[in-house]
């Protein structure tokens, strides 16, 4: 008797759930490489951060513009070991179907720490594209002690200590440039590294930290809701839209502007086939050319669109690697 009830429940369950799966279906093309399974896209930062938004926007556009023949993306935020584990995993994917269906979001903030802390190099990946260049701003929250960056500088000169919260990688580099340009020590203005910008924003919203460093994308919602206000553009010129009120450093005082452009790109495992690399590079080019990309990403989050295909991206990332290794005194 009990068994019958169980079976009946199970059948009912399936019947209830069936409409949910009704829309699946794929189109098949016949030339060269075409995605034939879901694509795993690894991001080495937490959801809500800049890299995550970048990834989800691209995958979203690819699905909407039908660039992946009906397949879906599985975005996997792998933040272990500062992202090194995720990068290592991708670099080691063996040749075959999986290698052709694995992507990794890769930007200068990932590349730098990887070169500094590990022996993993860009040669272990297949660069697919560079999509855009991003920059940061400093923001204050509602409970901020200082309302402008000039006040921050005065406070530090008066012996106060100021704390900036930010993400790892490129944010640290930008912070170091900023402190050096201001002529302060890293004790006078200190920096708290978070796993992603979203965590840094949390600490500013709660009033625990004075200032947060963020790229426009991760802070966008909070600026719109009036919870964050931009006070300094880390750029050679002001941003536009609701970020236009933030001055650059040279406007604040007798300093040079601090700008540390971050390139945002996509790579695959080293073992990815040449046909797949070409396919993804073309698909990313199509995203870069789409109006959705221009309006929903580049304009909205105030980036500079700068597309490089898989050949150009390879040269670009290798060049970055050579220069970065030289700057930290490593030979290879």
């Amino acid at each position: 008797m009990k068994k019958h009830v169980l079976i009946a429940t199970f059948v009912l369950l399936i019947a209830l759930a069936a409409p949910l799966f009704a829309q699946a279906g794929a189109e098949v093309s016949s030339t060269g490489f075409v995605p034939s399974k879901e694509i795993e896209w690894i991001v080495t930062s937490s959801p809500g951060g800049g890299s995550d938004i970048f990834t989800r926007k691209i995958s979203d556009i690819m699905v909407r513009e039908n660039l992946v023949s009906g397949q879906t993306f599985l975005v996997n935020n792998k933040t272990d070991g500062g992202g090194e584990v995720g990068r290592l995993t991708v670099s080691r994917v063996a040749a075959g179907k999986l290698a052709d269906h694995t992507l990794l979001t890769f930007n200068s903030g990932d590349h730098g720490p990887m070169l500094k802390n590990t022996d993993n190099r860009i040669e272990n990946f297949t660069p697919l594209a560079v999509m855009a260049v991003d920059k940061q701003l400093l923001y204050i929250g509602e409970y901020a002690k200082y309302k402008t960056f000039a006040e921050v500088i005065d406070a530090v000169k008066a012996g106060k200590n100021v704390v900036i919260a930010g993400s790892k990688g490129d944010d640290i580099l930008t912070y170091e440039h900023l402190v050096a340009e201001l002529g302060f020590t890293q004790n006078q203005i200190s920096f708290i590294t978070n796993d992603a910008t979203s965590a840094a924003i949390t600490s500013v919203l709660g009033g625990h930290v004075d200032i947060v460093m963020s790229k426009p994308a991760a802070a966008d919602q909070y600026v719109a809701a009036g919870k964050l206000t931009p006070i300094l553009a880390l750029s050679n010129s002001r941003f536009t839209g609701n970020l236009a009120s933030a001055p650059t450093l040279s406007e604040v005082g007798p300093y040079k502007n601090v700008e540390n452009p971050i390139w945002r790109g996509v790579v695959g495992p080293k073992a990815m086939s040449a046909e797949a690399a070409k396919y993804w590079s073309d698909a990313l080019k199509a995203v870069s050319d789409s109006t959705a990309w221009a309006t929903e990403y580049i304009d909205k989050y105030k980036l500079v669109s700068e597309f490089r295909d898989y050949v150009a991206a390879k040269a670009y990332m290798e060049q970055f690697q050579v220069e970065y290794l030289k700057s930290i005194g490593k030979t290879k």
């Binding site: 959801p47 809500g48 975005v75 935020n77 919602q221 809701a225």
Partner: peptide, 18 residues
């Protein structure tokens, strides 16, 4: 929660104060 947040964004919703 982080993965759910990722889902929200994937579905085109803007999680956040609004």
């Amino acid at each position: 929660g982080a993965v759910l947040l990722g889902g929200l964004m994937m579905w085109g919703l803007n999680p956040g104060p609004l």
